[in-house]
Simulated assay, not measured.
Amino acid sequence: MSDLTTPTGIEDRLRQLVNDLASAQLTLARVRDVEVDAKHTYEAARRAALFSGQCPKVTRGGYTTAERDAWVDGQVAVQRRAYDLAVAKREAAQDLLRVVRDQAMVVMALANSVRTAYQVAGRG
Results as ranks from 00 to 15, higher is better:
E43N: 12
S52E: 09
V114M: 13
D102I: 02
V76P: 00
L110A: 08
A88W: 08
A38W: 01
D95T: 06
V106R: 14
R90M: 05
V106G: 08
R68H: 10
A29E: 14
V31P: 01
N112M: 07
A22Y: 10
C55R: 04
A45W: 07
Q119N: 12
R68C: 04
A82G: 03
T41P: 06
D69I: 15
L26R: 11
L21C: 02
Y118W: 14
G9Y: 01
V100Q: 00
A44V: 09
D3K: 13
V76F: 00
R90T: 02
A86Y: 01
D20L: 02
G122C: 13
D3C: 11
C55D: 07
Y63C: 06
D3L: 10
D73E: 13
Y118M: 08
R101Y: 07
A82C: 06
H40I: 05
F51Y: 11
A82M: 04
R123K: 14
G9R: 01
V120T: 06
E11Q: 13
L110Q: 08
L21E: 00
T59G: 11
A24L: 04
V18D: 05
V114S: 10
A44E: 02
R13Q: 04
D95I: 13
V18Q: 08
R13I: 04
Q119H: 15
L50I: 15
R101I: 03
F51V: 12
R15F: 05
Q79V: 02
S52C: 02
T65S: 14
V120H: 13
E67H: 07
Y118F: 08
Q75Y: 00
R80D: 03
A38L: 06
I10N: 01
V99T: 13
R80A: 01
A109K: 06
G53A: 11
R101K: 07
D33N: 11
K89Q: 09
T41Y: 08
Y83L: 00
R115D: 14
G74Y: 08
F51E: 14
D84S: 05
G53E: 11
E67R: 05
G74A: 11
L85N: 09
A44Y: 14
A117K: 13
A24K: 00
S23K: 06
K57P: 07
